[in-house]
Each structure stands twice: as C-alpha cells, then as structure tokens.
Simulated scan of single mutants.
Amino acid sequence: MDKKEIKSIVEGLLFAWGDPLDIKDISNVLQINEKELSTIMKEIIDDFDYNRRGLRIIKFNNFYQIGTRPEHYEWIKKLNNKKNTKNLSNASLETLSIIAYKQPIIKSDIEVIRGVRSDRAIETLIDKRLVKEVGRLDRTGRPILYGTTEDFLKYFGLESLDDLPPIEEFQIESTDDDSQ
C-alpha cells in the first residue's frame, strides 16, 4: 500500500470513528509500525494546515482526531440552533487549574488550596469529562486521586500536559487588603 492510500485510509478512519484514535489502533488496522505512521500523521497534519482545509487533525498524547478549525467557529455556530452549553464557572476553572498542575491530587488538598469546598466543581468537571478518578491514595479512607483527561487536552488544544504554561508565568493577585 502506498503512502497516498495510507493517508486516505487514515482520514476515513478518523472521520468515521469520531472519537480520538490511539496511534496503536491505527497502526494495527493498517498493519504498519507506529514510527512510520507517526511520520505519515505529521505529513497529513502539515498538509491540512498548509492547504488551509476546513478540517484539521488534532493530536494529543498518542491520540488523533479529526475536527474543524477553531477559526471557523463563528460560522459553524450559526448552524447550531441548540442553546450553547454553559461555560465553566470560575470555581470550576479554578479547581480544574489546580488539578491540572498538581495531579494526581485529592479533594481535601484542592480544598486547602482554594479555601472552600470543591464537591460541586469536581462533579461538574467529571460530568464534562475534563477530570477523572485516576486512583486512590493508600491511607485511611482511601481518598480519590483526580487527574485530567484526554478531553481536557483536546478542549484546551494541548498535545500533552507538558504544553501547560509554566505556573511561574501567572501573576497571583492577592485578595487581602495590602494598603495598610
């Protein structure tokens, strides 16, 4: 099978599957090694980008998915008659940030950092598939450890957690009155 045919099949697989596909699964279907497939996937991504196609191949960790270009959102939104799903609250975004940077982390540690209960925020993040249970801490009560998901990476356009901006780049604003 030539490279052109492989690229065509990959596009079809990504389109038909809809959800992210692991490179291992694509490799098994095509019966080619992952290293060769990675090179071909890079070529497909570059081709989509160079030709400014309406679709793009999104890569995160070792997963690939076909999707629309973010710059076309305004036009695509016009077709959608359904009410937009509610955005994340500040509490949920704050909780998600803590989990992303400190994972794996237990709820009580999140609450110590935030200074408030986080049950509802964590529940919302799990419902939106941005956070998941990644294990249990081996201590009394066996508290749940939370971490981010592949959907988190996709939602924020990250290939891996290494792409998160360094936490040192953020200016932390004090909520205390420092004017005394």
Rank of each mutant, 00 (worst) to 15 (best):
D46T: 11
D176C: 03
K82F: 14
L130W: 05
N33Y: 04
F60D: 01
L21G: 04
Y155D: 07
R142A: 11
Q180E: 14
K7S: 00
V131Q: 05
I110L: 11
I113W: 05
N81G: 06
I144G: 02
I122V: 15
I98V: 15
V116S: 13
I110Y: 06
E168K: 05
R129C: 08
R120F: 10
G12W: 00
I167R: 06
E123I: 14
E133F: 05
D2H: 02
R136H: 15
I57N: 01
Y73R: 12
K42L: 14
D177F: 06
F63R: 08
A121Y: 04
E173F: 09
W75H: 10
V10E: 01
D119F: 09
I110V: 15
I105A: 03
S179A: 10
T140D: 10
D138R: 12
I144V: 15
F15W: 04
P70Q: 07
D47R: 07
K86H: 04
G54A: 06
N87L: 15
V134Q: 09
R52C: 05
Y101C: 03
M41H: 00
R52H: 12
K77V: 09
T149F: 15
V112M: 10
D25L: 11
E123W: 09
I122H: 12
R120N: 10
S174C: 04
V134I: 15
R114E: 12
R136Y: 15
K128G: 01
L30I: 01
F48P: 00
L79R: 12
E169V: 06
M1Q: 03
G67I: 05
E71N: 08
R53H: 05
I122L: 09
N84C: 02
R52Q: 13
N51R: 08
K59N: 07
Y50W: 07
N62I: 06
Y146I: 12
R53L: 05
K59R: 14
S8A: 04
D176G: 00
A121V: 05
D162K: 15
P104E: 11
R139S: 13
L96P: 11
R114C: 13
K82P: 00
K42C: 08
F48R: 06
M41T: 00
L164G: 05
V116G: 02
L161C: 04
I126T: 10
T124M: 09
I122E: 10
Y64D: 03
A121T: 07
N33K: 07
K42N: 14
L37V: 02
E36D: 09
S160N: 14
L13V: 02
T68K: 03
T148Q: 14
L37Y: 02
L137N: 08
L96V: 11
D178R: 09
L30S: 00
Y146D: 11
F60G: 03
L55V: 12
L21I: 14
D2A: 00
N33C: 03
V112L: 10
E74T: 08
R142V: 04
T68E: 05
A91H: 08
R136L: 09
K77F: 07
A16G: 02
I26H: 03
G115P: 07
S38Y: 08
P104V: 06
I23D: 03
P104R: 10
T95F: 07
I144P: 04
L137S: 12
P143I: 04
N33P: 02
L37F: 01
I44F: 03
L79M: 14
L145S: 04
R120M: 10
R114G: 03
V10Y: 03
I144M: 07
K102V: 01
S92Y: 06
K107R: 15
R129P: 00
T149P: 13
